[in-house]
Simulated scan of single mutants.
Amino acid sequence: MINTIVKPAGSFSATVAALALTGLNAPHAVAADANAESGVRISAQAKSETRAIAAKDPQAVNSAANLCGSGYELFTAERLPDATRLGTLFTYTKSGSSGLASSCAVFDNNSGSSVYMKLKLCPNSTDAKLCKTDDDTFSQYAGPVRVTGSNASILCSKVTAIMKYEGGTVINRVTYAAPCN
Score class of each variant (00 low, 15 high):
C131N: 06
S157F: 01
N109Y: 08
S95H: 04
A177S: 10
A178Y: 02
F138G: 04
G69Q: 09
S150Y: 08
V174R: 03
R41L: 13
V170N: 06
V145S: 04
T88P: 10
F107W: 06
K158Q: 12
K47C: 08
T137A: 05
R51D: 06
D136V: 02
T133H: 01
C131E: 06
N109R: 05
A44E: 15
N124I: 02
V115I: 13
D136Y: 11
T137P: 00
E78M: 05
S11K: 14
N3S: 10
R146C: 07
L130G: 04
S157D: 13
S48C: 00
Q59F: 07
S11H: 10
L86D: 12
M163S: 02
L67G: 11
S103I: 03
A9Y: 13
K158D: 09
K7R: 14
V147C: 01
S157A: 09
K158C: 00
A178W: 03
A152G: 12
G149A: 03
A177F: 00
C122E: 10
K158V: 07
N66V: 11
P8A: 05
E49G: 10
A77N: 10
L119P: 11
V174T: 14
L100R: 15
T50W: 08
A46I: 03
E49V: 12
F12A: 07
N62A: 14
T175R: 01
L100K: 15
V145R: 08
G149H: 08
S113Q: 15
A152S: 14
N110Q: 15
P81E: 09
S157G: 10
G10T: 14
K118S: 14
L24F: 10
L67P: 07
I171E: 08
T50H: 09
I53C: 01
K120Q: 13
N181K: 05
S48F: 00
S95G: 12
T15M: 05
D136N: 15
M163H: 01
A26V: 15
T93G: 03
A177T: 04
Y72C: 04
T126L: 00
F75Y: 14
N66A: 12
L74H: 06
L24W: 08
D57P: 04
L89Q: 08
G168W: 00
L130N: 04
T126K: 08
T160N: 04
Y176R: 04
I162F: 01
F138Y: 15
S150W: 06
S98G: 11
I171M: 00
S95M: 06
G71E: 05
H28A: 10
Q45V: 04
F107A: 03
E78V: 04
T91R: 03
G99C: 05
L19F: 13
I2K: 12
R79E: 15
P58T: 03
S114A: 14
T91D: 05
A65P: 13
G23R: 11
Q140G: 15
K47A: 11
I162D: 09
N25V: 12
Y176C: 00
L100V: 13
A161P: 10
V115E: 13
P144L: 04
S111I: 09
N62E: 15
C104K: 09
A178F: 00
A161G: 02
S13L: 06
N181D: 05
V40A: 10
N62T: 15
E49I: 07
D33N: 15
G87W: 06
